[in-house]
Amino acid sequence: MENNDIIKLENRVYKRPSLLNEAHMHYCPGCSHGVVHKLVAEVIEELGLQERAIGVSPVGCAVFAYNYIDIDWLEAAHGRATAMATAAKRLMPDKLVFTYQGDGDFAAIGTCESIHSCNRGESIAIIFINNAIYGMTGGQMAPTTLLGQKTATCPYGRRADLNGYPLSITPLLAQLDGTRYVTRQSVHTPANVRKTKAAIKKAFLNSMEGKGTSVVEVVSTCNTGWKLTPEKANKWMEENMFAKYPLGDLKDVDAKNE
């Protein structure tokens, strides 16, 4: 194959999803958000839901998700994304409604809404980015910050006696009758990216089929907040985050039925 053949359209093996626009992302180099955004855009496109997708963006680093993925969006107050998604889905059951939230939004200020939306079994998909830190506001402690992990508000490392324990929320949600599918994934290797994409697809299909709540936790890095290079951040995540937040399906009602 000549060099010129490689760039021919019919030989293309990878492309920017049509719903992911060319706006310059504000995410730090090495951040996981861009990858998850791409997966969301891809899955919506592959499911042909461009005209029916409604995203709810959070307060946190992903606040501007609406600038990058070309679907209709609601921008929630801090923590209230699942409440907004609840109403949007109930009022328009034929739409794909999903939230995209970080750990502070979903598991600290929004815990009440998060638990109750899952418990009611709202047919929404929740994409929950857990990077164990508040990225947007400058690296403060998150509910999911690990013991010993240093942040701007636990500069000597998180201590259980001072700061409480890290919150692993998805196992808690898996116990609720309203959740259909609860999984924990990552996007730090191509294999993991593929698994996360499959998880998002399943979650979106569950929403469209009115099957109850799906939660896709993506254990992620924040190399800027963690003060590590992207590569070292991935390694740190594997060594530390996965111990507290092990990957895999926590609940899949449909798998049991199969």
Partner: peptide
């Protein structure tokens, strides 16, 4: 019409915020 008892007034007003954002009479 949808009727939902929310988990709190905080959730309720944000549900209304969403519904209103969708052009619905909520």
């Amino acid at each position: 019409m949808v009727v939902l008892q929310a988990e709190s007034e905080v959730a309720a007003i944000n549900m209304v915020y969403a519904g209103a954002s969708c052009g619905k009479a909520v």
